Computed example of a mutant assay.
Amino acid sequence: MTEPITVLVADDHPLFRKGLRALLHSMPGFEVVGEATDGAEAVRLAARLGPRLILLDLQMPGGDGLTAIRGLAALDPGPHILVVTMFADDDSVFAALRAGARGYVLKDTDDEEMIRAIHAVGRGEAIFSPAIATRIMAFFAGRPAEPFPGLTGSERSVLQLMARGLSNEAIAGRLGLSPKTVRNYVSNVFGKLHVVSRAEAIVRARDAGIG
C-alpha cells in the first residue's frame, strides 16, 4: 500500500477546520496530522510534523498567511500549499502564488471542487477554483497590472512611503498632510489590503513591487 498524503490544516475558525477535517477523513489516501490556528503555528507544526500538503487560510492572527507561505516554502522538503480563503482579489491571489502556493480555492467552493483541488495539489500540481482561474486569465489577457487598484492616489502614495520605512509623521511631512489625515489613509489602506498591522501592509506592498 502507498503511504497516505499527510495534511496540516491551518485556519483560525474551528468550524471550518472541522469541516475540512471531515472532508479529508472521507478521502482515501489522506491523513490529517495536525491543525494550526495561525500562520506562525502552521510553520512550527510543519517543521515538526513534515506534512506533504497544507491547507492554509490567508487571513489569520498571530502571523499572516503570506508570511506563513514563505516560511513553509523555505522548509526542506517543502510542503505543497493549497490556499483556502475568502479573498478572491487579484492582489491576494498573485501574492500567494509568488510566495509559493501551488493552488488557490475559495472557502465557498463545493465539496467536489475542493476534493479535486486537494488531490491535485497533494500530487504537486497547480490548481485554482473556477472563479480564481477566470481572474488569472483576465489578468493575463491584458488587464492593467497596477497592484491594489482599489487604492486612491493618496492612499497609494502613503503605502509607498510606508514600504520605504517612513513613520506617519515623516509621511505627513513628505506629502504636506496632517498626521491625522495620514492616520486615516493608513487605516483605509489596512482595510483595502485586508491586513491588520503596518508590518503586514509593508509585506504586501513589497511583494507587489511598491516601495
Rank of each mutant, 00 (worst) to 15 (best):
M86A: 15
A133L: 09
E41N: 00
F30W: 10
R143V: 08
A163M: 10
H80Q: 15
R70L: 08
A205V: 11
T152D: 13
G142Q: 05
V189E: 04
G19P: 09
V189R: 06
R17H: 13
G103M: 00
L151N: 13
L58K: 01
I136C: 09
L82M: 10
M60F: 03
R174H: 09
E3A: 14
G153C: 03
L175S: 06
S26K: 11
P4D: 06
A126L: 11
A99D: 04
A172M: 03
N184A: 14
R102I: 04
I127S: 09
A46L: 01
D11W: 05
G173T: 07
R70V: 07
G39D: 02
A126M: 13
L106V: 12
T2R: 11
P179E: 13
A120G: 04
A199R: 14
R48Y: 01
L8Y: 03
L24F: 12
Y104T: 07
G34K: 02
R204N: 05
E155Q: 15
H25Y: 08
I118Q: 09
K180Y: 04
D111A: 14
E35C: 00
G209N: 10
S26I: 05
E112I: 07
A10K: 03
F140D: 05
P179D: 13
T181C: 08
R44H: 03
V32Y: 08
R198H: 15
H13T: 07
D111I: 05
G211D: 07
P4T: 08
R156W: 13
I132H: 11
E112H: 10
A42F: 03
N188F: 05
G176Q: 02
T37C: 02
E146V: 11
A199P: 00
P179Q: 14
E3H: 05
H25A: 11
V189I: 15
E169G: 09
R102T: 00
G191C: 14
G62E: 01
A22V: 09
G176L: 02
F139T: 04
I69C: 04
E31R: 15
K180W: 00
R48A: 12
I210Q: 07
I132D: 03
A101E: 08
G124N: 07
R183I: 01
E169C: 01
H194S: 14
A47N: 06
S187L: 12
L166W: 11
L45A: 06
R183T: 10
A170T: 12
F30I: 06
R52S: 05
L82V: 09
V195G: 03
A46V: 01
R156M: 12
V32T: 13
A95W: 05
H80M: 07
G29E: 06
I136K: 03
G124F: 09
R204Q: 07
